[in-house]
Simulated scan of single mutants.
Amino acid sequence: MKEKKPKVFAVSGIKNSGKTTLVEQLVTRLTQLGYKVGVIKHDGHEFVADHEGTDSYRHKAAGAKNVIVYSKTKMMMVQEHEEPSIEKMIAYQKDMDIVILEGMKYSAFPKIEVVRSARSKESVCDPETLLAIVTDVPLETSVPLIGLNDIEGVLEIIKEKILSPLN
């Protein structure tokens, strides 16, 4: 039996451009439409998954290389390793229909970029990878421009360019 691979695209843009808000809205709507959605977020800074004082932090401080914390409904694994490949992280999401990458503006993945007048006023992504730009700025571009609050417009692009083979 062939293993299912999720459809993958990125929501990109500069820091504080509104990527997380757009991803949150997309996850909500795609889930309402019946898709199983996973998210992989790139953090340009080293983050602490478990903070000082927690048992898992204490285990890591004592020298554990892997720590898994779980409950009845969740699991989190903190693992020391070299920078993981995006392909490996996508493989962890193999049961999903769709995986949204937050960030990854310089990757080869198809992407929707957020450009806001309050931040940059220009696209920073490779035009060859852009599906659309979500913006409040009039830009000269060959890809569709979608208003910041037009989540249905963004969904139409995703359905047409990313999901059409799933339908």
Rank of each mutant, 00 (worst) to 15 (best):
D136M: 11
M75D: 01
E52S: 07
L33P: 00
V27R: 00
V154G: 11
E24K: 05
K4H: 10
V69C: 13
A61K: 15
L139N: 07
L22I: 06
I98N: 01
S12T: 12
K111L: 02
F9L: 03
H51N: 04
M77W: 08
A91G: 07
N16L: 02
G63M: 10
H51V: 06
A91P: 12
Q25N: 13
V115Y: 01
G13Q: 02
L166I: 10
K105E: 07
L163Q: 02
G38M: 01
D136Y: 09
K121I: 05
R116S: 07
L166M: 10
Y106C: 02
E113D: 07
L22C: 04
V27C: 02
L145F: 04
V39M: 01
K111N: 13
K15H: 12
I151R: 01
H42M: 07
K88F: 11
L22H: 02
V78E: 10
Y70E: 11
K72T: 14
K74Y: 09
M76Q: 15
I98D: 01
K15G: 08
K159N: 13
V11N: 01
T21S: 12
A61Y: 12
M1A: 14
L148M: 15
K7N: 06
L101P: 02
K4T: 07
D95K: 11
P138K: 12
A10M: 00
P138A: 11
R119L: 04
T28E: 12
Y35T: 05
I40M: 05
H81K: 12
K60R: 14
K60N: 03
T21Q: 04
V8S: 06
E83A: 15
L148T: 06
G147A: 14
E80I: 06
V124A: 04
E24A: 14
Q32L: 10
D150N: 06
H45R: 13
I98E: 00
T129Q: 13
I98G: 03
R119Y: 07
E80T: 12
S123I: 10
K105M: 10
M104C: 14
A118V: 12
K88L: 12
F47P: 00
K111R: 11
E24T: 15
A49G: 15
V99D: 04
P165N: 14
A61I: 02
N16K: 12
K4S: 13
P110G: 09
K60T: 09
K161N: 08
E80R: 12
K105W: 01
I100Q: 01
K159Q: 15
M96Q: 11
A10S: 15
Q79A: 11
K72V: 06
L139Y: 08
L30E: 02
K161Q: 15
Y92V: 06
L166W: 04
V143G: 06
Q93S: 11
N167Q: 08
I90W: 09
L131R: 04
